[in-house]
């Protein structure tokens, strides 16, 4: 059974932030990643079929509306749908 994050680390976390040590940032909830996923979807042979196409369109729209996380989620579902065997 894994050991949970020790209390000392939890207490130290804000301290690290406070001392200027930046915590790593997840980059896959961004507009750039949306663009990367749109390109990947377009390269897939099943991208034109449903529901991949509509999911991709929804994802792109959400990304353009400034909701990259929701957009990325839609695009990922579109990619998974496009990868699925017919």
């Amino acid at each position: 059974m894994p050991i949970r994050l020790p209390l000392s680390v939890m207490l130290a976390a804000p301290l690290l932030i406070a001392t200027g040590e930046p915590i790593p940032r997840i980059t896959s909830d961004s507009q750039e990643y949306c663009t990367e996923l749109v390109g990947r979807l377009a390269r897939l042979p099943g991208a034109g079929g449903e529901p991949a196409r509509s999911l991709g369109a929804d994802g792109m729209r959400l990304c353009e509306e400034g909701q990259p996380r929701a957009g990325v989620a839609k695009l990922r579902r579109a990619i998974r749908a496009a990868q699925a065997p017919p």
Binding site: P2, I3, R4, L5, V9, A13, L16, I17, E21, P22, I23, P24, R25, I26, T27, S28, D29, Y33, R69
Partner: peptide, 30 residues
Amino acid sequence: NLDRWPAAAGQGPDGPWSFAFVAREGISVE
């Protein structure tokens, strides 16, 4: 999808296993 190597990664007592905080859309998550 991580912009930098977390300081705590691989430094804990569990060898390769560790816990760390990362920022997702500006919010610190475990």
